[in-house]
Each structure stands twice: as structure tokens, then as C-alpha cells.
Amino acid sequence: MSKRVTFRSRLLPWFLLAPQLLVLLLFFFWPAGQAIVQALFMVEPFSGELQWVGLLNFEQLFQSSAYRQAILVTIVFCAATAALAMFLGLFLAVLVDRVVRGRTVYRTLAIWPYAVAPAIAGALFLFLLDPAMGVLAFALRQGLGLAWDPSLDATHATILVVLAAAWKQVAYNFVFFLAGLQAIPRILIEAAALDGAGPWQRSLRVILPLLSPTAFFLLVMNLVYAFFDTFGIVATTTEGGPGGATRILVFKVWEDGFVGLDLGSSAAQSVILMAIVVSLTVLQFRFLEKRVQYAG
């Protein structure tokens, strides 16, 4: 869609588009194309020499128990992070939406963690949950008698990275849920109240359905976040351990490419990731289309 009234020039618009398109070509499309090509080769790290292997890189990936584990780990990690972050975001938003006094203070306190880098969030949670040092680890040991040890226990390590990842993302969900809640016409809620619906019923029958587009949008955003932006958390805490229990796909791509120097396999993993983002984006786009229709 463009304006009915437009400027007349053939070259100028392309000139305006050129910087963005150039950056995209050089740093997005070319590398993406290269990743697809390299996925079919073995690559010598120093010379960049290519050796055709066809689909071998993919075959070996799916045969490797480590990669299959990474897929599973990623699914669990993304689902848990998205669920926790969304639940807490909604929880805070509902509460802040309800109170009158102190709303600004509460809102401020809920938003700022968004500004903390995932890598630093990782450092903070490592300090909290370090088996030897951490305050929370100590509380868990003393209070619950739980032998907390994320360096050894897969579940504990997963909890550690999920907590750090969700902590940072709660703010994002909070902002959107609060905006969503405040956009609900008061009159609808009042009408429901007049019909005798209590706060609980109103939440269930009126508010939640009206929030569902926001929730769906957030689900996609949270999955994308958990999938891609959490590299820093894993890198600063568990480094994929113990026993690969927190080795998410993005971490493995980096590890195999830059620690293992297996560029062919890393490229093949990139292609698989690309397929996953494409499907997530399609999902998001279909939703966006719908939302545009809602908006009329």
C-alpha cells in the first residue's frame, strides 16, 4: 500500500532504499545463501576449502544423539521460558491494572529488568544459584533440604537457565498485557459486573478472551526470544552442561562452529534454524493478518 498522491521519480526511491538493501544483501542474504551452500560441504577452517558431501552434514546431525538431545532441550527450554515469563507478566499486569495507588511505582519496578542483557542476567542468576556460593542455593539446601547442584543435576541446570531467561522477559510481557488490559473498554466490564459477574468470573469470561490476541502475539515473541536471544544466558552459566542438558540449538551452532571448528556442520545447523524461524514468522504473520482485519 502506498499513498494516492506520490512524488515522481524513478531513481530517487531506489537511492533511498539502497542503504538498507545493501546491508541486507551483504550481511543477511549473502551469508544466509552461504550457510545453505556450506551446509552441503565440509569446510577447512583455515583455507576455507570446500569438500562436497551432499546431505551428509544433515544426516550426521540427525544421527547424533547430541543433536537430537539439543532439539529436545530447546523445546523444553522455550516452552518453559515462554510459559513462565508470560504467566508472570500477566500476573503482574492484572495486579497493577487492579490497584490505583502506587501504580506508577509498581509499573516502573516491573519494567526495568527488560533493560538487563541476557548475558548479565545469566551472571546474576549464576551468583544466586551457584551450588557453593549462591544465596538461593543455600536457602534451598537449608530450607528444603534439597541438594541443589546445577553443575550436576540436569533439572536444576534447566531451572537455572529458564529462571534467568524468564526473569528478563517478564517485563516485556507485562508491558503488553497491561496495555491490553487497559485497552479493554470499561463499559464491557461494568456491564458484566451489573449482570452479577464477580471479579473471578469477569476475568475468565470477559477479560481473558479479549486478551487472547495479545497472548498469542506474545507467545510467538517469547518463543523467538527463548530460541535466539538466550545464547548469552547459556554461555555465561551452564555452557550447555551438565551432560548437554542445557545445550540449546543456538548454543550448539556457536559451539560446533567456533569451538569445534566444524563449519560444515555448523552451517547445516544454521539451515535448520532458518527453517524454524521461517515457520515461527509465518505463524506470526498469519496472526498479524488477522489482527489487521480486526482493526478494520
Binding site: A132, S151, L152, E239, G241, P242
Partner: peptide, 17 residues
């Protein structure tokens, strides 16, 4: 007592102990 994993981050545990 096992005090570390592959991760650099934990590797200090065995030593610290």
C-alpha cells in the same frame, strides 16, 4: 566429591573445595 562440569563457570568448584 564431584566439583565441576565442563562449564568454565563451575570449574572452580573442585579447586575451591
Amino acid at each position: 566429591t564431584f566439583g565441576a562440569a565442563a562449564a568454565q563457570t563451575w570449574a572452580s568448584a573442585a579447586r575451591t573445595n
